[in-house]
Each structure stands twice: as C-alpha cells, then as structure tokens.
Design a protein around this nucleic acid. Structure first.
Lengths: 195, 195, 195, 195
DNA sequence: ACCGACGGGACCTCCCGTTGTT
DNA sequence: AACAACGGGAGGTCCCGTCGGT
C-alpha cells in the first residue's frame, strides 16, 4: 500500500472513531486534524470535503463492524446457532469494541434521519445489509427445517436489531453493560423458541 | 402565566422540536431564532446560554413524552394491561408524535453519551424515570399476582425500552412505521406470556 | 440617520474605495475590516456576503461619480457647453477624485467582464446611465439647432466615453495626469466641430 | 525547442489567457493547473512563484499582441496608412483575438495600478513600447512630409491608445463590438485630417 | 520533468454571546 | 422584554509553496 493510501486509511480510521463518538456535526475538521496529526492541507488532499470524509468514514466503520460479525459466524451451521452467534457477538461491542463510541449504524441513523440525507442513505444501506443477513439465515433455516416454518424472517430481523440497538443505547447511556447483557440473554432464549 | 413566561415556554417548545430533529450540535442559535421568530436578545433574555436552553428544552421534551404516556395508563389497572398500554402508546410516536424528530431520550442519549455530560445526565434521569415506571408496574403486578413471580422487573424494563427505542430508530431510518408496528405486536405477545 | 445606517454607509464608503483600488478579488474581508475598524461580525451584520457588499459598494461609488458630474452641468444650457463641462469634469478624477482608485465603472467593467456576472450587470447599468445622459444632451442639442443634425448621438457617446476612460487608464498607469489632460483638450476641440 | 521549453511555453500561453480573463488575483494556481493539465510540481518547476508566472505570462501576452500588430504594418509605408493599419488591426481583438479576455495591457494596467507594482512596471513598459511605435511613425511622417508638421506625436499616441482601449472596454462590457467599430471608423477619419 | 503529499495559513462565513437602546 | 449592533473567534474550504519520490 502506497504511503498516500496508508495516510488516507489512517485518516478514515481515526475520523471514523471520532465521528462515532462526537457525531458528524459535533466533530470539526480541527478535531480530525488533532487525532490524525495532519494539517488541513493534508486532510483535504485526500477528501474533498468534510461531507465526503464523513461518508467514507461511515463506510469504513460499518465495514469494521461487518468483519467483527462475519468472524462470529465461522463454524456455525445451524440457523439458530448462527443467529445466536450474531447476537452474542454484540457483547463485544462494549467490552472490546471494533471502534469506540458504540454502534456506528445506530449513531449515524439517529443523527442523520432528519438532517443529513447523504449519511442517512449510507446508514440505510448498512442496515439493509444487516437485515438481509438475518433474513437469509432465517429463510435458510426454515428451508432446512431448522426453524419453525411459521417464523417471519422480516420480523425476526426487526426484533433482533431493534432490541440490540436499543440495548446498546441504554448501556452506553449508563456506562453499564448490564442492559446489553440482559437483552442478549433474553434474545438467546427467544431464538430457542423458534427452533 | 405572564407574557414573559409564555414567551419562555414558546421558545422551549420550538427549540425542543428543533434540537430533537437536528441534534444539539446540529442546530444553531440562528436556527432557534428562525423557528421562534425572536431575535438573539429575546432568546438570551430567557436562557443564559445555548447549553442552558438545550438542557431545559430536553426536559420540556421529556415532559411532553411523559404526558403522552401518562394518558395511556388511565383506566388500566392490571399490570399487563398497563404495560401493553405503554407499549401501544409508542405507535403514536410516528403517527401523531408529541414532537417531531422521534424519541428525545433516544436522540439525546445517542448524541450525548460520549460528548456532552450535561445532556447525558438529563437523559439518564429521564430514562431512570421511565425504567422506574415499568419497574413499579411489574413489581406491583407480581405482588398482586397479576404477573408471574419469576419475572424480573429490571429485565422487563430493559427489554421493553430497548426494543421500542431500537424500533423507533429503525422506523425513522427507513421512514416506514412497519418496524415499530412489528415490535409493538411482538412485545404485546411477549407481555402476555408474563401473566 | 440611525447609528446602524451610519455604520452601513461608512462601510460602503470605505469598501467602495478599497474595491476601487484593489479590485473585488484583490481585496479581502480582512482588508475591509482594517479600513472600517469593524470586526467581521459588524460587517456581516450589514451585508450578507462579500458579494452583496461589493455590489452595493459599486452602486455607492457610481452614485458618487454621478453627483460629481451632475454638479458640473449646473448653469450650462447649450448642448456643446454641457458636453464640454462633462468632459472637463473628468480632470478632477485625478486631481480631486470623488474616490481613490480611478473610475469605478472602468475598473469594475474590466475586472468583471469575463468573470463576475453580477458586477458586470451593475457596471452595464451604470454605463447605460452615462451613455444615456450624453445621448440625451446630443439629441436635444440637435433638436435645438445647437449641434449639427448629422451628428450621431450614439457615436458621440461611444467616442467621449472611450477616450476618457482610456485616458484615465493611461494616466493612472503612469501616475501622470498628462494623458488625461491631453484627451480633454482634444475632446473639447472635437466637440467644437459639432456645433 | 527542448521538451522542457515546450512545456514552459505551453504554461505561459495558457496562463496568459487565464490571467487575461480572470485577472491576476482572480485566478489561482489551481486554475492554472486545470487549464494546463499539469500538477503543482510541473508548474513550480518552471516558475518559482505565482508572481513570477504572472509577470512572464503578461510578457508573453504582450508579445502576442505585438506580433499581431507588427503583421498589420507590413507593406504600408505612408505614416497615416501605417497608423490606420494599426487602428484597424484592433478590430480583430474582438473577432479573432490573439488571446481571449481583451487587451492584456488594459486589463493589467487597470488591475495593477494601485495594487501590484511588479505588474504595473511591466504594463508600463509594454505601453511605452506601443506609444513609442506610434510616436516614431508620426515623427517619421512629419519628417517625410506625410503628416502636418503641427501634429504632436505624443498627443496622437495618447489619443489613439486612449480611444481604442476605452472602446475595447466598452465592447467587452456589453459583449457588443459596435463600440469598437465606431471608434475605429472615427479614428480613421481623425487620422485623415492629419495628412 | 513531473507528480503527489503535506504544511501553514488566508479566505469567507457563521457561530455564540455581550452590550447598549428602546 | 425585545431588538440591533458588534466583538471575537471557530468552522470549512482553498490557497501558495515545499519537498520527497519517481
């Protein structure tokens, strides 16, 4: 990787975390300068605007999260096992987070929904990808007879995601992982009932 | 109410909605001036800083939400009925919201958790109040034999709040109330199992 | 005049001279701050952008020039006398200029013609007004028999304005009023031939 | 011409036109990069600063104009013919200009007179050269008896240049060659009277 | 000879908050 | 109680110029 690409990647990585903690509107280019150690010229050489940087930084953050979860699925084949693995992987979001500041999709969705169409589109796409993953696991599970045929894949996706994201919010608000742990336990039980 | 108090109240009301949509960092005093029709002096006469206004505006928003839910409990006496009434009351958050921009507790919690201790405290207190309400309903329900004695009030609070807040986020992200509706149906069923 | 109007007028006056000397692109808001003694907040309170200030400053400059020439016509009734008075009034543009930096129409026309449509429009309107004045004087002169009926008012306007503006440029370039003086003498003679 | 010299020449040529249209202050190195297709390094390799480039670009532009006029003199021997040829050559400035943006001497003189001593010097030298040419033609014409001995060569130079430059400004301001055409016709007549 | 990355700073705009005035 | 004028500075963008690489 060329030096330029390295710098660009470093900016993305550090800006992603910054935006994830302070929000897009709450973090300034000066803040980005501080965390990257670069001056404005150095940053604007790689990204033509704060907006463009924010968009790419979100994509970077989402990709980080995706990798985190892709790993958790390895070796699990039963649909319910896979869903439980996904859910359990969220425990790491507070203990050993892929990036500080909580779930970037949640953060970005909440900040952008009424104010920032560009970011909102990215957050939607990311959420689509996540919902699609759950949907496919459930559907395959039904086809294979691993899950009850009455289960609605869309509903499962909505319930899992809602509960987990809400719990992340709660645990971050209180600085206490207990809320996330409770919902993870609960969701594991819920998933068992779908076998 | 004196004229001054009226003005103050109008500022709070309009600023609350503005902050709820654009976020604290994303909305400027100029924006507040625009929605209130007042000039700077008129606003700073009532609030000594943007921060102070934001704090009070959040309290105002939370109180609005509280009233919305307090109403839904009227006439319900069985614990499970009361919890279901609360849950169902959330449907109105998208159809006929007490204020635009979604749930202020969610929005404020997500924006403030890593960046704004003052707001974070307010959001925590608001959440405490909400959790306390659910907790009390469950506890009383157990005492009265309306709910299974094995039910953990803290867990119920965490699950209900997480799921609903996550669903609000989802529905706002997609501009589609379906996600919130799904979780409300689901939670009604979940609550039935606790009888 | 209110204090605000006074300040606004002072900004216009000083900015007009600044832009007339350094050009629109060559003068910064910092320069405007320096000559007015105001800070940015004070300037942007009266003008919403540098562009808006530049446009109004040009209008102000043109009005200054107009007053300068309107005065020179007083008491002259014969068409040729009036035209000569106009031409002679230009001598003052270097000795006792209404504002430093030469003729604002010339300066603005040259800077804006390929680059700044807004300013270009203003410069055109200003020039229209000047051409219209000469045109009317000539036309009335012909009607009254003060000037030869073969004279073309449009041509006279073009020739007078071209020659004077070109001479102002020359004299400013060399810092020497001789060029302007020569053309004024010459134009006085030229105008005599139209009697 | 070496490849380096070719590149240098290409930069000058394209920068000259750019500066002639947008002005020195109004055109940035980025603009120069765009029109030349080179990157910063490629430009600064040949010119040590924007200033140096601007100075040379002006010289280049002036030389272009000079060649344009030198050609018009070929085959004309009578002083008045030669002056008329010069004047008529200006018609091409709008129809088939040696470079876009009007007369570089006029543009540079107007922009630099109060603000840019370096450019102003160059513009003065260029103007000296033009005035000198007219002066010599007139003087020789008097010596040869082709022009009236009472004619003042300096005055003729001032009048011709002023009128033409002013007319270029007018025609560029309105985007209409009529003003330049009128003054050219007029100056041809004026020159006839000097025979 | 040319490119690309970057520093350091100027630019315009908008920000928050204060003050004097009505 | 509300406005209008202003200070002082932060924000995002773009600028000019340098320097290491190729």
């Amino acid at each position: 990787m060329s030096k330029a690409q390295e710098t660009r990647q470093r900016i993305l990585q550090q800006a992603a975390e910054l935006f994830n903690q302070q929000g897009y509107a709450g973090a300034s280019i000066s803040d980005v300068m501080e965390v990257t150690g670069l001056k404005k010229g150095g940053i604007y050489n790689h990204f033509k605007s704060k907006d463009a940087l924010a968009l790419e930084a979100f994509d970077y953050a989402f990709q980080l999260v995706q990798q985190h979860f892709a790993g958790s699925l390895r070796g699990k084949h039963h649909a319910v096992d896979r869903l439980q693995a996904l859910v359990n992987a969220y425990a790491g979001f507070l203990d050993a987070p892929p990036l500080l500041g909580g779930c970037p999709i949640l953060n970005t969705a909440v900040e952008s929904d009424d104010a920032h169409p560009g970011l909102r589109d990215r957050a939607q796409k990311a959420m689509d990808s996540w919902r699609g993953l759950i949907h496919r696991i459930v559907q395959k599970g039904i086809e294979r007879g691993e899950m009850l045929p009455t289960v609605n894949p869309d509903c499962v996706a909505t319930i899992l995601i809602s509960t987990i994201e809400g719990a992340i919010m709660l645990s971050k608000l209180y600085g206490d992982p207990i809320h996330l742990k409770r919902t993870i336990d609960y969701l594991n039980g819920y998933l068992e009932t779908l076998r």
